[in-house]
């Protein structure tokens, strides 16, 4: 087990998702990518991930809906959101639902890592 925790990444843009995984792994995390939110929902087990990094706009199930469903299974799961649409209604929903940060795409890698570290250390 990595000392830095296991991160779930769900983004329908595979290129971006793969890059995020690489960035997270470089920083010492274990990370897993799903490009299909429904598949992620089917495969995730409670307690498996310390944190979820979810895109807000995805076909099938949007990030907020996915988070809601994941949280029903794993009430302690922490989550942050990413979106290209800073003025999306979903941004508000994401915050109301308890997602901790909403990053605006393009997500700046060093900023992302800094925030994730803080969140995993304090749980908020």
């Amino acid at each position: 087990m990595s000392p830095r925790g296991h991160i779930l990444v769900v983004d329908d843009n595979a290129d971006l998702g793969e890059n995020l995984i690489e960035i997270l792994e470089d920083a010492g995390y274990r990370a897993q990518l799903f490009t299909d939110p429904l598949e992620a929902l089917g495969k995730v087990c409670p307690g498996q991930y310390a944190l979820a990094l979810l895109d807000l706009r995805m076909p099938g199930l949007d990030g907020v809906e996915l988070f809601r469903a994941l949280r029903r299974r794993d009430p302690t799961l922490l989550a942050v959101a990413m979106t290209a649409f800073a003025h999306d209604d979903r941004v508000r929903e994401a915050v109301d639902e308890g997602m901790l940060v909403v990053f605006t795409k393009p997500v700046e890698p060093s900023g992302l890592l800094g925030r994730l570290e803080g969140i995993l250390a304090t749980g908020a």
């Binding site: 290129d15 971006l16 890059n19 995020l20 690489e22 470089d26 290209a84 700046e108 890698p109």
Partner: peptide, 10 residues
């Protein structure tokens, strides 16, 4: 642009 930026970072 996000892909370009993160690829460049890597």
């Amino acid at each position: 642009l996000g892909v370009i930026e993160s690829s460049l970072f890597l």
